[in-house]
Design a protein around this nucleic acid. Structure first.
Length: 152
DNA sequence: GCCAACGTTGGC
DNA sequence: GCCAACGTTGGC
């Protein structure tokens, strides 16, 4: 089992949206490293930290889980989609996605600034300078520490 | 809104 | 295959 952190801009898609939808395809990932994580390393049931970025208080806001095997990101060949990629065609796209399912919302956001103040989390990728990947692996230790901190 | 850091593109 | 230019991310 692997553990993950998924970034999302709450203006675009927040934990509340996920709670309402329950399950959503994680479409629109157009970064090879992030694609590879989904395609090659995610399994159904993998736990996910849901992270809000590019907002007033960035941080971890909830939990989710991988809910499907990887499959082709159909938004890549949808000309009306903001994720349209002219190099992709049905059944020949380079882009992959998975579905995720809602698990829980934190009572209070575990903010980025708070995360930075927890020494045992210092090595988390999301805390490293210049780390822009929207899908990041999280170590089991870090995941469990965070679970304890938020008491869920 | 600024800007550092990073990924991608494209000319050569 | 190098690398400058450009676009994007995302915290501040």
């Amino acid at each position: 089992m692997n553990y993950w952190l998924l970034k999302s801009e709450p203006n675009e898609y927040s934990i509340d949206n996920l709670k309402k939808d329950r399950v959503t395809p994680w479409s629109g990932i157009r970064n090879y490293q992030a694609r590879n994580f989904m395609r090659d390393h995610m399994s159904v049931g993998d736990p996910i930290l849901f992270y809000h970025s590019s907002c007033k208080i960035p941080g971890i806001v909830g939990f989710a889980e991988v809910h499907s095997r990887p499959y082709m990101d159909y938004t890549a060949w949808d000309k009306t989609s903001i994720y349209y990629d002219k190099k992709s065609q049905p059944h020949h796209t380079t882009w992959t996605m998975i579905d995720i399912i809602y698990v829980a919302t934190l009572k209070k956001i575990l903010s980025l600034s708070k995360l930075r103040n927890i020494p045992s989390l210092k090595e988390m990728l999301v805390l490293k300078k210049g780390q822009r990947l929207s899908i990041q692996p999280v170590s089991e230790m870090h995941f469990k520490l965070i679970k304890n901190i938020v008491n869920l």
